[in-house]
């Protein structure tokens, strides 16, 4: 079987298009590359959806945590502590069994027990908490002069937030937020290893990589392939976020622009 044929059969296997049965034996390198790559669709789906939705909640959380009103501050603090203080792995398990017991009494929660929605909700809340903390830190370090200048121009309330506070917050938080995005994409590999079932063997990249490793008892081929895909993905994120960083900093003289520095140690 030629490699083109394999790609046609398994390229979209993870979303249920193409050959139904996974290869059983005599795995070729092409099959491993195709299937693991096909699984990446799920990682990218989870990552992008969670980032897009989490961004809005994160902004709200950051503003809430910085608020002087106790009724806004306390819930935001607790939310952030809850999701940053516990392992994502346990959150996945808890959410799955929680949705499962909800489903028993209310059938409308059926979709929540499948990964595409249930795991997405957990990732959304989790990334919102982590980015909320990053945004909060940035909010606290907005130069005082910027706010005073806004006051002097007669801006207040929404206008000041929309035109001064929020852009500055994003600009300051962006390097850390890029890290968060990278680690969110890495965290998506946990989905099918927690309780969420991979229905009809439609799993993510790590699911297929471990499938091959289990079948061939040889970890030295599938995991490096997975690593290759993830390094590509990481580079794509870094360059994409770098472009946005450039735009956020475009009004500053070149020397003062915040350099994108990447540090790890944000894994969950």
């Amino acid at each position: 079987m030629s490699c083109i044929q394999t790609i046609q059969d398994y390229g979209l296997r993870s979303v249920g298009i193409g050959e139904r049965l996974l290869p059983k034996n005599d795995f070729t390198l092409c099959e491993q590359f195709t299937l693991i790559g096909s699984g990446m669709i799920w990682n990218i789906y989870f990552g992008i959806m969670a980032l897009a939705t989490g961004f809005l909640l994160a902004t709200a959380l950051a503003v809430g945590k910085a608020s002087s009103n106790k009724w806004f501050r306390k819930p935001s603090e607790w939310f952030i502590f809850l999701f940053r203080g516990s392992p994502l792995f346990i959150q996945f398990f808890f959410a799955y069994f929680f949705f499962l017991s909800l489903k028993k009494s209310y059938p409308m929660f059926d979709a929540f027990t499948s990964a595409w929605l249930g795991a997405l909700i957990v990732l959304f809340l989790n990334t919102a908490a982590y980015s909320g903390e990053i945004f909060y830190g940035a909010l606290r370090s907005i130069p005082k002069g910027d706010i005073e200048a806004a006051d002097a121009y007669g801006m207040s309330g929404w206008a000041r937030f929309r035109r001064i506070v929020w852009p500055t917050m994003l600009r300051l938080a962006w390097p850390a937020y890029t890290n968060e995005a990278i680690f969110l994409f890495h965290a998506t590999t946990l989905v099918f290893f927690s309780a969420f079932p991979a229905w009809q063997q439609r799993g993510d990249a790590l699911y297929y990589a471990s499938y091959f490793a289990d079948k061939t008892f040889n970890p030295f081929v599938p995991y490096p392939i997975l690593a290759f895909y993830f390094i590509l993905l990481t580079l794509a994120i870094v360059s994409g976020f770098g472009l946005i960083n450039k735009r956020l900093n475009r009004h500053l003289p070149v020397a003062r622009q915040t350099k994108m520095r990447f540090r790890l140690n944000l894994a969950r």
């Binding site: 890495h186 790590l206 690593a227 993830f230 390094i231 990481t234 580079l235």
Partner: peptide, 10 residues
Amino acid sequence: RGVPDIAFFL
């Protein structure tokens, strides 16, 4: 940095 830690574990 570029690779998920869970992949390393497995």
